[in-house]
Amino acid sequence: MADWAGYMGLMLDGALVTAKLTVLGCALALPAAFLAGLGRLSRFSAVRALSVAYIEFFRGTSIFVQLFWAYFVLPLMGVTLTPLQAGVLALGLNVGAYGAEVVRSAVQSIGREQHEACVALNLTRWQSLRHVLLPQAAVVMVPTFCNNAIELLKATSVVSLISLSDLTFQAQVVRSQTGSTAMPFLTVLVIYFAYASLISFGMKTLERRMTRGLDGLRT
């Protein structure tokens, strides 16, 4: 166990890559979710069809297949991506599709009277969305987004299969170099669990801040 510190450093490098993937993936997933989720509620049928196609395609095929497609097939079409870019693209778009459904159902869950009040106040569609519907819907979305973020974190482990040196990949490296199996995999499991707990803690804090002053108003 003389090289223990060295191997630990290797895995911490991997932990950093995993964190980067998770953050960048979320940064892509969030706008994708809002665009597609609101797109499904659009007045224009073309926008609706496009959103449904995006959502169903990315929810219907597995993240694994999407990642391999982005990494192996897109270069044949002239778009060459680094493993990190392919990973962020596939993870972000995949989780974004799940998030889109969350956005849609949250906006639809806002009571009818709110829509009618907006019409009565003569707000434009954009104004009612921006100032009335989304602020209320956002509170409903946070807990589910928390789950989605953890799903994204877990999905990042798949990128190790396209040779990106994330946490899972480094565990395999340590396994093949030391021959010890329990140590690297247990360490990695604990690190992932710590990340998941961190996300869940952060989201709970956010939720508490957002619902402050809303007690009694929401049923």
């Binding site: 953890i150 974190l153 877990k154 999905a155 990042t156 482990s157 798949v158 190790s160 299969l161 899972t168 565990a171 395999q172 396994r175 199996t181 329990a182 995999f185 247990l186 990695v188 499991l189 992932y192 669990f193 998941a196 707990s197 869940s200």
Partner: peptide
């Protein structure tokens, strides 16, 4: 909570590589 917070891929590796030991 632990199983749900960690990736399936790592769990599969764990079952496949650690249990035989």
């Amino acid at each position: 909570e632990f199983i749900r917070g960690t990736p399936l891929l790592v769990q599969l590796y764990f079952l496949f590589y650690v249990l035989p030991e």
